[in-house]
Nucleic acid binder design. Structure first.
Length: 564
RNA sequence: UGGGCCGUCGCCAAGCGGUAAGGCACCGGGUUUUGAUCCCGGCAUUCGCAGGUUCGAAUCCUGCCGGCCCAGCCA
């Protein structure tokens, strides 16, 4: 594995080992998979699991992966989603072999439908949707045959050709497979294969007025592309008999097999396209790429790296049992990746003015600071120190609790990369709030000085009041305040939205080095977390997003102390 | 109550008849000018439950229990 990454070195799982056995038995000389999104929304972290799986499976056996858009329903698909999906897959680090569309195969699929009709395995039904539904039976009762079920093949062919020709309105007819209305598996009760949709398609335009259903399009598309293993989520397990039935009854060029795995769930978020679409369309978030969204676009904007997401997918594994992964697991992967690679900087989110009483006025002293404490190769930069600086409000307590070892009246603290100071005086406003500290510095404690190694418990980050630059900083918290917002049967998941998921700070001060940061950069603001410039940051209006905090043992301790 | 699937530590997850991997979390301890990182150590006599088969079962059989999915002309 390179760096903290694993593009292809996925840990094993039941799919990988099954295919390995097949390959070793000589059943395949190469493995071809496909990632088949429907272009009706943005990709989310759940899709990432599928992408990583598909690409790593094919890659492990010298094969490749196609990107295939499952665009069989023109009513809800759009070009902009195709664009975003391609961008996201590329960003994740994967390169597909072929870019394909189910709509590329409409003509071939139509031919397959004719084949079924001619062999008496499909028929045109003239009943409306409600009637068909009523005849399908229930979970416990068998369905009943359609009166059109025994329509002669020639008549079926004629009707189907006229469906294509546009002679009928939407819903007038459907093509159905003739399987078994009494099958315990409802998907086998004469499933609909084609429906009339007089609708413009984003790729085929007005060429088609009938469109195949997922069940009819998917497996056959797999076969046409010589996909060897069609990996999908568990809810399609019931469709596998139909998938196989169609492959067996059609003159397809290859015989792919479908394997199902459990989809991803993460706590405190939702991962279904339907719900994500609602968050966007109802305006609960700023868009598909809102940094609070679990979409790849949102995670990217938030500051997540492709490697962190890939590593996450590999860490959680692939099985058939559905579980809920704590959001913290994803966050830790980001920390792991960025800890190794992010340059360190100092930034103060909630500034508290500190005057260093024995530091000369109008002077600037530059301190050299390592860009990474464990990686000297990342170099150093210089940070300016002046008589007036800002420290974090949280780093001073007038009434310090037990075990609080930052600054307090009369106490000492070390200014990171600089020297040790002692708090001599606390200035307050009329409201009694602390507005300024007067501190004296120990000149011998300068980095490299004779007293530099003096033991002082707390180390504080700081910026020069004069040299620091202002910035807006956006802090994010979980989008929902319950572990499983989609699992509530009484209340709509929207009701569980966390009203404090976004906090905007407009008074942050950054060390001057950060002035030139642009989208795509990433930093660790020491003692605070990992931050990235937002997509819309500008030199004259810096905006940073907090991707994730650092592990904060003190926050945890303090909570425990307060609780007991 | 029909069909399909799942149930191994708080969360993931190996294991596939020979006597419970690993990761995360958590709890100790060490290093540290980030209460970060890093390092060391601890952490299931037990595999949803109950029977059975076997010298031997998480692994095989039977029966229960719990959870998820399916009745779109969505995917």
């Amino acid at each position: 594995m390179t760096e903290s990454d694993s593009l292809t070195a996925a840990p094993t799982n039941f799919i990988l080992s099954r295919i390995r056995a097949e390959v070793e038995a000589g059943r395949y000389d190469r493995v071809v998979t496909r990632f088949p999104p429907e272009p009706n929304g943005y990709l989310h972290i759940g899709h990432a699991k599928s992408i990583v799986l598909n690409f790593s499976v094919a890659g492990a056996f010298g094969g490749y992966t196609n990107l295939r858009f499952d665009d069989t329903n023109p009513a809800r698909e759009e070009q902009r989603f195709i664009d975003s999906i391609k961008e996201d897959v590329r960003w994740l680090g994967y390169t597909w072999e072929n870019e394909r569309y189910a709509s590329d195969y409409f003509e071939a699929l139509y031919g397959f439908a004719l084949h079924l009709i001619d062999n008496g395995w499909a028929y045109v039904d003239s009943q409306d949707a409600d009637t068909i539904r009523a005849q399908r039976g229930t979970l416990t009762e068998p369905g009943v045959n359609s009166p059109d079920r025994d329509r002669p093949a020639a008549e079926n062919r004629d009707l189907f050709e006229r469906m294509r020709a546009g002679e009928f309105p939407d819903g007038a007819y459907v093509l159905r497979a003739k399987i078994d209305m009494a099958a315990p598996n409802i998907n086998l009760r004469d499933p609909v294969l084609y429906r009339i949709r007089r609708q413009y398609h984003h790729r085929t335009g007005d060429d088609w007025l009938i469109y195949p259903t997922y069940d009819f399009a998917h497996g056959q598309s797999d076969a046409i592309e010589h996909i060897t293993h069609s990996l999908c989520t568990m809810e399609f397990e019931d469709h596998r008999p139909l998938y196989d039935w169609l492959i067996e009854h059609l003159p397809v060029p290859s015989r792919p097999v479908q394997i199902e795995f459990a989809k991803l769930n993460i706590d405190f978020t939702v991962l279904s396209k339907r719900r994500l679409t609602r968050l966007v369309s109802e305006g609960h978030v700023a868009g598909w790429d809102d940094p609070r969204m679990p979409t790849l676009a949102g995670l990217r904007r938030r500051g997540f790296t492709p490697a962190s997401i890939r590593n996450f997918c590999n860490e959680i594994g692939v099985t058939k049992s559905e579980g809920i992964i704590p959001y913290g697991v994803l966050e830790r992967q980001l920390r792991d990746d960025l800890n190794a690679r992010a340059p360190r900087r100092m930034a103060v989110l909630h500034p508290l003015r500190v005057v260093l009483t024995n530091f000369p006025e109008n002077e600037t002293e530059w301190f050299e600071a390592a860009n990474h404490p464990q990686d000297p190769g990342m170099g150093t930069r210089h940070v300016p120190m002046t008589r007036e600086i800002f420290i974090e409000q949280d780093d001073f307590r007038e009434e310090a609790p037990r075990k609080f070892f930052r600054l307090k009246p009369g106490g000492e603290g070390r200014l990171r990369n600089a020297f040790i100071i002692r708090c001599d005086e606390v200035l307050k406003n009329d409201a009694g709030e602390v507005i300024e500290l007067r501190c004296i510095l120990d000149p011998d404690s300068r980095t490299g000085g004779p007293n530099a190694d003096r033991k002082v418990k707390g180390t504080l980050h700081w910026v020069s009041a004069e040299h620091s630059i202002p910035a807006e900083v956006r802090l994010y918290d979980r989008l929902f305040n319950v572990p499983h917002p989609a699992g509530d049967r009484e209340r709509d998941f929207i009701e569980h939205l966390n009203p404090e998921s976004l906090q905007i700070l407009d008074g942050a001060r950054l060390e001057p080095e950060l002035a030139t940061a642009t989208a795509g950069d990433f930093f660790q603001f020491e003692r605070l977390g990992y931050f990235v410039p937002d997509l819309n940051t500008r030199p004259e209006g810096l905006v940073f997003n907090r991707a994730v905090t650092l592990r904060d043992t003190w926050a945890k301790l303090e909570k425990e102390l307060a609780g007991v």
